[in-house]
């Protein structure tokens, strides 16, 4: 079992840890996610599909005989991913997920307790999904030449469905461009791209890269523009109007921008209301839609570029 998986198991109660470490010793690196749902079978998602985990750690495509998650399992895991300090993660919980050490993203759903019109915490948690972050050096090989021109960096929006490799590509793009001597700044709102831990990026994002983490995009981009004089700003998941407004502030300042958003095609993204102002003029010059080819360690991420007139 690799270190990344072992790291994740530390966030689980002892019996789940034992069970899943047996599972992972068989599945190895193919695990992509772990789904823990209250009173339902424990499920892992791999490159070959979903499997139920049996009490002895073996996996089965059918859910019969699977380990049934107990309420205390889910509560303990929730506390652990919040580093046993739920108050310190209220902002993340409000967004519905927490990023843990190593950059893995943990989604949380359940019955929220509201205060002042905002989610304060989840009183009863029904599901936790842990998505295993993967650092793939070279993931952006097919994309980097489309973004980095001999004399400039094209403002680019990277598009892919969830789990489509957006973050992986952004991370490797940062590494490749930065290592060519271009001052790169990453606004890592959820700490997924660089995953800074105690001041050191856990992932390789290049030698000329500055990272600002856990800051809303709007504030993060303005701070970076003002303080670090970057040539390129990289950020992921443009998902709201506020995110798109943050990018508008960068366009026209001479800094190039590479960002990502959920989607399946260039047309679909261009018709999304809050993204519309970002295209044309000083904004995005191209959209690159990612597709995956092959399986496991041989997965290739390919990018199809659509130039915006």
């Amino acid at each position: 079992m690799n270190n990344r998986l072992a790291e994740i198991l530390n966030y689980m109660p002892e019996h789940l840890k034992r069970m899943l470490s047996r599972t992972f010793s068989v599945t190895g690196d193919s695990v992509q996610e772990i789904r823990i749902r209250n009173s339902l079978p424990l499920i892992i998602g791999t490159q070959n599909g979903s499997f139920a985990v049996l009490p002895d750690g073996k996996i089965s495509p059918a859910v019969g005989g699977a380990y049934i998650v107990e309420t205390s399992d889910i509560q303990r895991t929730f506390r652990a991913i919040c580093e046993n300090s739920i108050y310190a993660f209220s902002e993340d919980i409000r967004q519905g997920f927490v990023t843990i050490r190593g950059g893995h993203r943990v989604g949380i759903t359940g019955r929220a307790s509201m205060y002042d019109g905002k989610i304060e915490t989840f009183r009863e948690i029904s599901s936790i999904s842990i998505r295993i972050a993967k650092e793939i050096i070279g993931a952006a090989n097919d994309i980097v030449d489309k973004v980095l021109m001999p004399d400039k960096i094209l403002n680019t929006l990277i598009v892919a469905p969830p789990m489509g490799g957006k973050t992986t590509v952004l991370r490797d793009l940062a590494r490749q461009i930065s290592n060519q001597g271009i001052k790169t700044a990453i606004v890592d709102e959820r700490g997924e791209i660089a995953s800074v831990f105690h001041g050191v990026p856990q992932n390789n994002v290049g030698v000329q890269t500055d990272v600002i983490e856990n800051v809303p995009k709007a504030e993060g981009t303005v701070m970076l523009l003002r303080t670090m004089s970057p040539q390129l700003i990289i950020t992921d998941e443009i998902a709201t109007k506020a995110d798109s407004d943050a990018l508008m502030q960068c366009f026209g300042t001479g800094v190039s921008v590479v960002a990502s958003t959920h989607g399946t095609s260039a047309e679909e993204v261009m018709n999304r209301e809050f993204l519309k102002p970002l295209f044309g003029g000083m904004g995005f010059k191209q959209i690159i839609v990612l597709t995956k080819e092959g399986k496991g360690l041989n997965t290739l991420i390919l990018g199809k570029a659509t130039v915006i007139e």
């Binding site: 198991l9 530390n10 966030y11 689980m12 109660p13 002892e14 789940l16 840890k17 303990r76 895991t77 506390r79 652990a80 991913i81 580093e83 046993n84």
Partner: peptide, 10 residues
């Protein structure tokens, strides 16, 4: 202990 195995019972 909290740092090395956050999943343990506080």
């Amino acid at each position: 202990r909290l740092k090395s195995s956050p999943g343990s019972d506080m």
